[in-house]
Nucleic acid binder design. Sequence first.
DNA 1: GAATCGTGGAA
DNA 2: TTTCCAAGATT
Length: 365
Amino acid sequence: MTSLELGPPTSRARIRRLREKLLGWYDTNHRDLPWRRSRDPYAIWISETMLQQTRVETVIPYYERFLARFPDIESLATADRDDVYEHWAGLGYYSRARNLHNAAQMMVGDFEGRVPEQAEDLKKLPGVGRYTAGAVASIAYGQPEAVVDGNVIRVLTRLLDIRSDVAQKNVVERLWHEAGALALGERPGDFNQALMELGATVCTPRSPRCKPTCPLVRMCHSYAKGDVESLPNKPKNKKPRPVEAVAVWIPRRERILTVQRPETGLLANLWELPGGELPPKAEAKDHVEQIVRERVGLSLLSPTYAGTVEHVFTHLKMQLHLFRTAGAEGRVRNGGHQAHQWIAPDRFDDLPVSTLARKAFELLQ
DNA sequence: GAATCGTGGAA
DNA sequence: TTTCCAAGATT
């Protein structure tokens, strides 16, 4: 890779000018977000974790509920796992909930019950990577640490006209280096947030508001070239792989059977109606009885097809075929799930369940 | 480096 | 309908 492809170097004068413009813009234009009203490192850590790959508008209600229920490290560390998951259900990427819970316990055990101040220590916590460590260290503790997220990648590749594929490791390293140089100085937390805020509200993926809104438009190399929107240069996403599965409604004495998914993998630790994946090209009604027998050890009584719900995950496009039954014979046996529970249908909502499981329940109810 | 891991909003 | 994608971390 040549330096030409990497775009122009960043001079000290240019850095100073950029910092002043961006911080000035941020002071009068930043959004009033719940976590910006707090200086509590714990609250900032929770918000940064929730914001991973998740939109601000989606996070806000979850953040409010979570902080109300678990206001500090101690309350989170001592909470039941299902209680934590109930407050995460629907937000996605559930390993974040498990990691938060474990990290809170690690803070109690290894960090005197506090959120660590150093990025190096923060990264020892499960679920805290390079970005989150830099964000918490700079925003909560004023440390001169950089952040590079999707917003920063977009802003910096455009500003510096970096046209190389941002999936390449050395390109990302260059961006961390640039962001690191920029974060040095006063108010590193505000500056990092300003960079992200610009990406979120002005330097957007499509139809960026360069003129007259962007405070950096006169320093922006891709704008000067007249090609802002094609940056950043990133590889196309793969299409989700089609998958089919079955799930069944099994009543017994005014209750239905629910099972808890395994500790790891897709939708880990969440509850759902029993069922399982279909072999490729298989017909759901030909396999539903066998799948349920293997998974929970029950023989279904007159299963009837009730409908199909579709749900798209990042890498899966799932069709879930649903069946009602008159009940089932046998004793529940563990066939992969962690636990099972016969619950009243009107209490299904109290369990930590995924959006897919909710769709299935809604259709069958 | 590539896959895995959710969800819902926008164009 | 399709596509992209949003304050990433982990394996």
